[in-house]
Amino acid sequence: MHDPSSQLTLDLKRMIIEALELEDVTPDDIDNQAPLFGEGLGLDSIDALELGLELQKRYGIKLDAEAEDTRQHFASLDALRALVEARRDR
């Protein structure tokens, strides 16, 4: 777990579980490539807003809800990690 990329992956999984109050879900249950919304983890549009707020609070990343690429950033945990690595300011 010294690889910064896998540490960030674990941090993001913990952030998702905590912010979205996913009872009974552990970091191991979240597949890095699986969709976070709809299929896969099964999150909904309110969760997307909640995650957007968490990214702003923890990493200083502001997403435009209307932008086309926002959907791609939330496609999977790997996509979310790539976003944070590219745009984090803290």
């Binding site: 979205l20 309110i46 807003l49 909640e50 707020l53 702003q56 609070k57």
Partner: peptide, 9 residues
């Protein structure tokens, strides 16, 4: 502190 969208909904 910004409100939680889930809580607000």
């Amino acid at each position: 502190i910004p409100l939680s969208p889930a809580r607000f909904s």
